[in-house]
Structures are given as C-alpha cells and as structure tokens.
C-alpha cells in the first residue's frame, strides 16, 4: 500500500468513494440516533448522497438510464418519502426519543464488526467487478447490514420503517457501484414496491396505534398465538 495508489483512481471514482464513505457515515449516524425527526433528516441526506453518486456514475459512464434512476431517487427518496414520513409522525405525534433494545455503544460495536465482515465478504465480489467504483461494494453491503441491525434493535415502528428504507438505499447503491445499475424495469419495480410498502405500513401504523395506543412493536408480541 502506498499513498500514491489512490491517485490511480480518476477523480469521479474518488468522489464516488467519498459518497460511499458518507453513506456509511450516515448509516452509523442513523444507528446511533435517538430522535425520530433527525432520523428522517439523515435518511433524506442518504438519499441525496445516493442521488449524487448515481448522477456521477451516469455522467462519467454515459449511461442514460442511470440518469432516470438518479431522478427517481431524487424524487422518491429525497422529496416524497421524507415528506410522507414527516407528515406521518406529525399525524401520529411520535416525535419522542426512540428507545433501543441494545444500548447505543454496544450497537455501534456490533456495527463495526459487521463492517469488518462486510468488507471481507465483498472483497472477492469486487475483484470480479470491472467498474471504477468496485471498492464501494463492501461499503454498500455494510450499509445494508447496518440498516438491518437498526431494524433489529429499534422497538418502535417508525424507525424500523426508516431502517427498511435505508436498507433499500444500500442495495441500490450496491447495484449502481457494482454493475452501473439494474435494468430499468427492475428499478421501477423496486421503486413502486417501496412506495406501496410505505403506504401499507402507514395504514398499518394507524392500525397498531388504534389497537395498542402506542407504536411500540413489542406489543405485537401479545398478538402471537397463545
């Protein structure tokens, strides 16, 4: 390893690497965040970073369909979903602090272990890939795992949904960086899925709250068969 090696990557690749790092940073920020409002803002930022990196990939590799998916990201993840989420929590009035099942430093430690695993697991895959940004696959995988961890450790429904969306962000990022994006149809399908999922979950929230007077999904434990 030498300091000069990084200079072999073109500038656009370096920017994408930076985006990847910021994605991961935001993933960790979400993992360590207790407040729902900040969580949504972080999610929005993650969408913005995703948009930027997709845009850069699209421009540098002249892949026009990526421009579309960048636009889709912008509309869906930076504008629409955060807006819906904001409205949702206002309607549900759940601005309070989120309590976590594990304490935050422990969660972070687990997160670090996940990153180490993700980096090593992704190494053979990224050797196969020929794109300029292949090193970011490990980070994308780490983002997915971190979001998954967040889903596990949160006890309230709204943060779980945000974690679910963040996981989709990670997947999308992996796709862009490894193979310059999925086919358009798949992407549209996923976008639709996310949208529909969001709506269903929104309805679901209201139902939970009506039923239990709280959004704490630990109440769901009671719903299992006795």
């Amino acid at each position: 390893m030498s300091p000069s090696l990084i200079h072999t990557i073109p500038l656009s690749g370096q920017v994408i690497n930076l985006c990847a790092a910021i994605m991961l940073l935001l993933g960790f920020a979400m993992l360590s965040q207790r407040r729902v409002l900040t969580l949504i803002n972080l999610f929005m930022l993650q969408g913005l970073v995703l948009f930027t990196s997709t845009l850069i990939v699209a421009i540098t590799t002249h892949q026009n369909h990526l421009l579309w998916s960048a636009g889709l990201t912008l509309v869906l993840k930076v504008i629409a979903l955060p807006y819906i989420l904001h409205r949702l929590i206002r309607r549900l009035s759940v601005k309070w602090d989120v309590d976590t099942l594990l304490n935050i430093p422990t969660t972070m430690l687990v997160g670090i272990a996940l990153v180490v695993i993700a980096f090593n697991v992704a190494q053979p895959i990224s050797h196969l890939s020929g794109t300029i940004t292949r090193a970011t696959i490990g980070i994308a995988l780490a983002c997915v795992l971190l979001a998954f961890l967040m889903m596990i450790t949160r006890s309230k429904a709204v943060p779980q949904v945000i974690a679910f969306l963040a996981m989709e962000n990670g997947l999308f990022f992996a796709a862009t960086s490894a193979t310059y994006g999925m086919p358009m149809v798949v992407e549209l399908g996923i976008a639709l899925d996310v949208m529909v999922g969001m709506v269903i979950l929104g309805v679901f929230f209201f139902q939970i709250r009506q039923q239990f007077d709280s959004l704490d999904i630990r109440h769901m434990e009671r719903a299992k068969e006795q």
């Binding site: 390893m1 670090i112 180490v116 980096f119 090593n120 190494q123």
Partner: peptide
C-alpha cells in the same frame, strides 16, 4: 502492519 496476507487480520490489527 498493513499488507499481511490475511484480509481479516489486516482489519483486526487497527481495531
């Protein structure tokens, strides 16, 4: 220590 022929080891040592 970087450059040990072991992926996990390289990441373990900084930790």
């Amino acid at each position: 220590t970087s450059g040990l022929p072991q992926g996990y080891l390289n990441m373990l040592l900084p930790v």
